[in-house]
């Protein structure tokens, strides 16, 4: 795998071997092997949409490996506000830095940016489409827990219709022979077009409406937040959200060894009594954003091989 000069736009662009190689590299970075690898490199962070964790994670990743960060976190101070096209903004910024990280509310913005930039572009979220670095850090966390990505039993719970993290993660895991259990209310099921693409060898899935319907224990349960704004009726939201809340009691159904993951922020879909159990790995998962993003920044700038 040689990602030097490549943009990280979508998990779809990566064959299985490259996904595994990036995940392995992320854990290698975590072990401390590549300290200072980004020394002298400049990252431009273009956040056309507000973000706290992702932006801080990228900035922390860059700075703690010796690099520097320029950019903006508020689109109101960028030239987009003056009517400049996204392509022109990128054509300009590309001359100021070694790598660009961009979040935009428009879907496909990162692909467009990667086509006009002369430095690598890393997509930090484009609307409801892709957020590939989240997928890589999710995979690195799974690899760290199980020592492999191959052949795991993975449940995904909550809003599987609109959640971009579960779409990307399921596409990636499908390449590794995953047995999926998709657990969602009927109105928030995994989209048909995503299900149709889960065609890796030995991959299979079931769709159920409730964790009580699980007929086997899980290795991983990936929980997502059900958002109020998806429901016209508040009482209906309360009823549905209550049915998809995970706590210590849920472990009996999920299996005592299950790892619970969540892309965060959590509201109340994971009860806090779960936090102190060894099953809860969602904060460790968030912290893996640093080495994963360092690995990607190093790979695309050519400072990590």
């Amino acid at each position: 795998m040689d990602l030097k000069g490549c943009s990280i736009v979508s998990i779809r662009d990566f064959p299985k071997e490259d996904i595994q190689a990036v995940v392995d590299k992320a854990l290698e970075v975590k072990s401390g092997k590549w300290a200072g690898a980004l020394d002298g490199k400049v990252l431009a962070t273009l956040f056309f949409e507000p973000s706290t964790r992702t932006r801080l994670s990228f900035e922390g990743a860059m700075v703690s490996m010796g690099g520097r960060v320029i950019g903006f976190a508020d689109p109101n101070i960028s030239s987009a506000k003056k009517g400049e096209s996204l392509a022109d903004t990128i054509r300009t910024v590309t001359g100021y830095c070694d790598v660009i990280v961009m979040r935009h509310n428009i879907e496909g913005a990162a692909r467009l940016a990667s086509q006009v930039a002369t430095v690598p572009v890393i997509n930090a979220g484009d609307g409801s489409n892709q957020h590939p670095t989240q997928t890589f850090l999710d995979l690195a966390t799974i690899q760290e827990e199980f020592g492999r990505l191959e052949g795991l039993k993975v449940g995904m719970l909550g809003d599987l219709k609109y959640g971009r993290t579960v779409h990307s993660l399921s596409l990636a895991l499908a390449l590794f022979g995953t047995k999926f259990s998709f657990i969602a209310p009927p109105s928030l099921r995994m989209p048909e077009y995503t299900l149709e693409q889960l065609k890796g060898a030995d991959t299979s899935f079931i769709e159920i409406g409730d964790i009580n319907e699980l007929n086997d224990s899980l290795d991983v349960l990936y929980v997502t937040r059900i958002q109020k704004e998806r429901f016209a009726d508040f009482q209906e939201y309360e009823r549905v959200a209550g049915a998809y809340r995970i706590g210590r009691d849920s472990l009996k159904l999920l299996g005592e060894e299950v790892r619970i993951m969540h892309p965060l922020p959590r509201v109340d879909e994971i009860v806090e009594d779960l936090d102190k159990t060894p099953n809860a790995i969602y904060f460790r998962q968030a912290h893996n954003g640093i080495p994963t993003r360092q690995a990607l920044l190093g790979l695309v700038t050519g400072t990590i091989q």
Partner: peptide
């Protein structure tokens, strides 16, 4: 047909 696609916003 996606109104939030960059092709409908940036004239790509």
């Amino acid at each position: 047909p996606n109104p939030n696609c960059v092709t409908n916003v940036e004239g790509v």
